[in-house]
Design a protein around this nucleic acid. Structure first.
Length: 277
DNA sequence: ACAGTCAAACAGGAAT
DNA sequence: ATTCCTGTTTGACTGT
């Protein structure tokens, strides 16, 4: 989106695709496409267990599982699919119940830790890291991480280690969480700034229109009433071109028209007849 | 069932 | 070498 040439007074505002609805569209359609791919990569194993859905990462789409382990942890059905990749095995875990998040949120801290620990253990087994196993953090974990983030937005290795230990997560997971959290903060800040820029743009556009109108009126006055001397000498107006005081020296006349003066100046069209200063 | 959103995890390049 | 940033992928979840 480029706001340019709004008027011919030399005042323009350029902006590069900030909050561009087209970008949103792109994102959505892209995501739509992505979503379809995701759907394709989902494998229903109803014959294994009712409502058992395994989300498979791209690496696993075309590979038959070597072993499927279905286990029950604290009332939740968890499935783990093992794949053979080279000499090692990789695992994809998933919770079968759609209300897993809500129910897991109701688990005691100890239960939660044990579930998380199980997931972490699986991940630790996956030395090649070929499978993307997604862990939803529990409320308790999120609260602790948020509190920590409020204190410091970055972690030193010692803090990372102790936080990981406290949350029963791997240090890498804590690190990634902080990275994503910083990115979200920045995104939010950018959105706020974008809104401010939009407001600024609107203000400038309105001002520009007003000045354009004023200029037109002055031109009409100049044409219809060319008897200059009849106008009071104090009829000063802002130079529409350079926005500076027309003191006749011409010193500032080469300055950029974009430098909207904090101190608007006025010029006398009679002592300084050049419209272009 | 499907579309959309959120966030965990990842990849690669820049910065230190 | 490590950490951070940025963009992307993908699983979980929600609303219609």
């Amino acid at each position: 989106m480029v706001f340019e040439g709004v008027c011919n007074t030399g005042l323009s505002l350029g902006s590069t695709s900030i909050n561009n609805p087209e970008n949103d569209h792109f994102h959505q359609s892209h995501h739509h496409h992505q979503h379809k791919i995701n759907k394709l990569s989902s494998l229903k194993l109803d014959h294994v267990f009712p409502s058992l859905t395994l989300g498979l990462s791209s690496e696993h789409k075309h590979r038959a599982p070597e072993e499927i382990v279905v286990s029950k942890i604290h009332g939740e059905i968890e499935s783990t699919v093992f794949y053979r990749q080279g000499s090692s095995r990789s695992a994809v875990s998933s919770y079968s119940n759609s209300s897993v998040k809500r129910e897991r949120d109701n688990l005691s801290a100890e239960e939660v830790e044990r579930v998380s620990s199980k997931v972490s253990d699986d991940q630790d087994q996956d030395e090649e890291g070929s499978a993307r196993k997604k862990l939803r953090l529990t409320k308790e974990q999120s609260i602790i991480l948020e509190d920590s983030f409020k204190e410091h937005t970055t972690l030193n290795p010692k803090q990372k280690q102790s936080l990981a230990k406290q949350l029963n997560l791997r240090p890498r997971q804590v690190e990634v969480w902080f990275q994503n959290r910083r990115a979200r903060t920045k995104l939010k800040q950018t959105e706020v700034e974008c809104e401010e820029l939009k407001k600024c743009y609107k203000t400038l556009t309105d001002e520009n229109r007003r000045l354009q109108k004023e200029l037109q009126e002055l031109k009409v006055v100049k044409i219809t009433a060319p008897v200059y001397m009849q106008m009071p000498a104090a009829t000063l107006t802002m130079c529409p071109s350079c926005k500076r005081i027309g003191d006749g020296s011409g010193e500032n006349s080469s300055k950029s028209p974009f430098s909207i003066g904090a101190k608007p100046h006025f010029y006398n069209p009679f002592t300084h007849p050049s419209a272009a200063c």
